[in-house]
């Protein structure tokens, strides 16, 4: 610790700012890892309850593979465009950043739209969270992910306004970096929802 402060005194102001940025981003990474534990417990709940259908329909009858594949590809593409966006932000290409995050935003919106469509469809068919333990766990896990995506969209929207107004300032680039970490993280969580909930749900 002492060694760290002593060496940071010798850094140029630019390097000091970089170090502060790195610490902030690391703090955000810590939050993501605790979020990882939250999703871990929801996954545990789901796998424990996945066969408790209480005489109701299981995954095989409820899930459409093509639909879920579409959702997955949309989210994956959004993660990709988000990555390109942060790359452009580091290079200071403001218009490119706005375009790429705009595309990411629209893809995220499409994803959440598809998810709401699925939820609505299940609900109207009487397969809501009240139907069985399996469906309660399903809605909790997938719904929590959807809530994260919605929060991410809100964040992305405000960031785009900020970048449009204030340009790629140091703070905005730092925020975009954390936003992109968040978005990639949600994509990774979705890969496991895709596999554990949907693919296993249809296979087993």
């Amino acid at each position: 610790m002492n060694e760290g402060t002593a060496s940071s005194l010798r850094l140029t102001p630019k390097q000091q700012r970089r170090e502060a940025d790195d610490k902030t981003v690391f703090g955000f990474w810590l939050y993501l890892m605790t979020d990882c534990v939250l999703f871990g417990s929801l996954f545990a709940t789901f796998v424990v309850l996945r066969n408790n259908t209480f005489g109701g329909p299981g995954g095989e009858t409820l899930f459409s593979l093509n639909f879920v594949l579409a959702e997955t590809l949309i989210l994956l593409t959004s993660s990709f465009t988000c990555g390109l966006g942060i790359l452009a932000a580091r290079r200071g290409q403001k218009n490119l950043v706005l375009w790429l995050f705009g595309i990411t935003f629209l893809l995220g919106l499409a994803f959440i739209g598809l998810e709401l469509h699925e939820f609505n469809h299940l609900y109207n068919d009487g397969d809501s969270w009240r139907r069985s333990g399996f469906l309660s766990a399903f809605f909790t896990l997938v719904g929590t992910h959807g809530l994260h995506i919605s929060t991410g969209l809100l964040w992305m929207g405000t960031m785009m306004v900020r970048v449009k107004k204030a340009g790629l300032s140091r703070l905005n680039v730092r925020q975009l970096t954390m936003l992109s970490l968040f978005w990639h993280f949600l994509d990774i969580v979705w890969i496991f929802i895709f596999t554990v909930v949907y693919l296993f749900g249809v296979v087993l």
Binding site: L76, F80, G83, L84, L87, R90, S169
Partner: peptide, 27 residues
């Protein structure tokens, strides 16, 4: 404009493209 950092740990367009293609293939 923020200074473009020379560090390797941010990746390039190529890393993102290869990651995207690999992920697509796996899915």
């Amino acid at each position: 404009k923020p200074p473009a950092t020379q560090e390797a740990n941010y990746g390039s367009a190529l890393t993102y493209v290869s990651g995207f293609v690999l992920s697509l293939a796996l899915t």
